[in-house]
């Protein structure tokens, strides 16, 4: 199973209680990984309200998840 790093921000950081973690996952896409983590940690945001970034760039939710990827899940933004 590929090992990835997940960084958490804002509401997800608080709900996970961590800034980042390394984990092994059988998820093939950011969407699948989010669903897995949401079920495990009871994240309140449904998957369709969260975007994904890999290695510092927005990606589609069905992009491939590769070994060593740095994944960030992005809750609805609220700048300004």
């Amino acid at each position: 199973m590929p090992s990835v790093t997940v960084q958490y921000f804002a509401i997800l950081r608080e709900q996970r209680g961590l800034v980042s973690e390394q984990l092994s996952t059988s998820a093939a896409t950011p969407l699948a990984l989010y669903r897995e983590l949401r079920a495990r940690h009871n994240f309140t945001l449904p998957a369709d309200r969260v975007r994904a970034a890999i290695d510092g760039e927005f990606v589609k939710s069905d992009a491939p998840l590769r070994e060593g990827a740095n994944v960030v899940f992005i809750p609805p933004v609220a700048g300004g």
């Binding site: 949401r38 079920a39 009871n42 945001l45 998957a47 369709d48 309200r49 939710s61």
Partner: peptide, 27 residues
């Protein structure tokens, strides 16, 4: 980020009708 009582069991299900489309993580 309000979710009106959504739970993990609905992971991947339809989101709040208020969700802005541009933030949704759909394939």
């Amino acid at each position: 980020c309000a979710t009106r009582g959504e739970h993990a069991s609905s992971a991947g299900g339809p989101g709040s009708p208020n969700s802005p489309h541009r933030t949704g993580m759909r394939p």
